[in-house]
Design a protein around this nucleic acid. Structure first.
Ligand SMILES: [Mn+2]
Ligand SMILES: [Mn+2]
Ligand SMILES: [Zn+2]
Ligand SMILES: [Zn+2]
Lengths: 130, 130
DNA sequence: TATCAGTTTAGAACGATTCTAATGTATTGA
DNA sequence: TCAATACATTAGAATCGTTCTAAACTGATA
């Protein structure tokens, strides 16, 4: 707990009760992909009475400090990823689950980007059938 | 125009005035990426008074007949793609624009999918900086 | 411990999309 | 040809994830 408080302070975030609970859950060493809804459900199970507004605020605050990555996989909700390294994903639409691909993948045969545009990042999404 | 009517009938779609206008625009030979909103704006410019409800209905009808592909690039709107071949994209967030990558790209170093899961398709999205 | 900037919260607002149900139209078979 | 009918269009309401608002609260600082 003291670690998390330090961690939050180091990232210019006040270690409030709610942030400590959320950070303890998100940054427990196991990478996670959450939406506001899945996080809210998890926190409900943990009997942490944190409002949805705070959950949205906190996810964005963490995102702005670079502690989370935002993933636009699905047009109906935003996923946040605790793995902030550049990586790729398996995605099961059926399960609404993401799985990290940390292996060094290489994309070959990429054409040149259009004039005056630079490539920022290449994202590979591997859709799973079932 | 007669071609489009045939085309719609061949796809079990009644060639109504609105569908003919929209299909003529979408399937004019130039691949397009549209959202309900961009399509609506385009139709407004063409003085075609087609309601938003019809635009949504038509995009979904065309999608269900396999005439359009749905792209989940951005969590705030759905893109429909007239290029129904398997292909990849450059994406400029700033311009909100997609550009097809039809070249044969190869992804190497892909790990095996999780147990009991099969790869359905690999999607590469190349984010552009500006 | 008072102060105050930053935080939490309920609920309103928002925006893309979907739904509803009334009206309109393409199709078809007599 | 032209009703009958099935399907399509539409305005506006509803939905749902997310963001905003503004009032109450709390952590940090002196
Ligand atoms: Mn969510
Ligand atoms: Mn749209
Ligand atoms: Zn990930
Ligand atoms: Zn495309």
């Amino acid at each position: 707990m003291i670690d998390i408080k330090h961690f939050l302070r180091q990232n210019s975030l006040r270690p409030t009760k709610q942030r400590v609970i959320i950070a303890n859950y998100l940054f427990d060493g196991v990478n996670k992909h959450v939406t506001a809804e899945t996080l809210s459900n998890k926190l409900l199970k943990m009997k942490a009475g944190i409002s949805l507004a705070t959950i949205y605020n906190t996810l964005h605050d963490f995102y702005e400090k670079g502690l989370l990555k935002k993933l636009m996989i699905n047009s109906e909700r935003i996923y946040f990823d605790t793995n902030t390294e550049h990586h790729h994903h398996f995605y099961s639409k059926k399960d609404q689950k993401l799985i990290d691909i940390n292996v060094d993948m290489k994309v070959s045969g990429l054409p040149k980007p259009p004039k005056n545009k630079k490539i920022k990042k290449i994202e590979v999404l591997v859709h799973l059938d079932n």
